[in-house]
């Protein structure tokens, strides 16, 4: 995430919520009473804006702290099994980036899984008009 380039336009949030909503048509994902929650959060400042999503930590505190064993790492992606998650939000308590959020029903936690199940290219990356968000492996 390159904060110098972020316009604070929130498109990443919209696209994230849309592609993870299961809807095919974008307006439907945002129709009344369907407030889909994005897995990315834009922080706006006076001059600076940036988007925050999961860093896919090598030592994920969310996984270590998970009380049910719902969080695992699959091919480098930190993944929440929503079937096993009971929504205690110990992961929200643990994540130093604030990158885990309650789902729209508030019953389970969710987070960025790099659009693995949406074709593999993160929608926030492809739809960022200023290329502030990039997908890079960091060692």
């Amino acid at each position: 995430m390159n904060e110098e380039w972020c316009l604070g336009c929130h498109l990443c949030e919209y696209f994230c919520a849309f592609v993870n909503s299961g809807e095919k048509y974008m307006p439907k994902a945002f129709a009344l009473n369907r407030q889909n929650v994005p897995n990315i959060t834009v922080e706006e400042g006076d001059r600076i804006n940036f988007a925050v999503n999961c860093r896919q930590c090598d030592e994920p505190l969310c996984k270590k702290g998970c009380i049910t064993g719902a969080i695992s790492v699959k091919d480098g992606v930190v993944t929440i099994d929503t079937e096993k998650c009971v929504g205690c939000f110990t992961c929200i308590l643990s994540c130093p980036y604030g990158a885990v959020v309650p789902n729209k029903e508030g019953k389970a936690a969710k987070k960025c899984e790099l659009c693995i199940s949406n074709g593999g290219i993160p929608a926030c990356v492809t739809n960022c008009p200023n290329r502030a968000i990039v997908l890079e492996e960091v060692y």
Partner: peptide, 21 residues
Amino acid sequence: KPNLMMFPKDVRKQKLGVGHR
């Protein structure tokens, strides 16, 4: 509220680019 904006720029950049690695 909890946010990353409160951190100084260098810390923020490290958090957003490198993370817990």
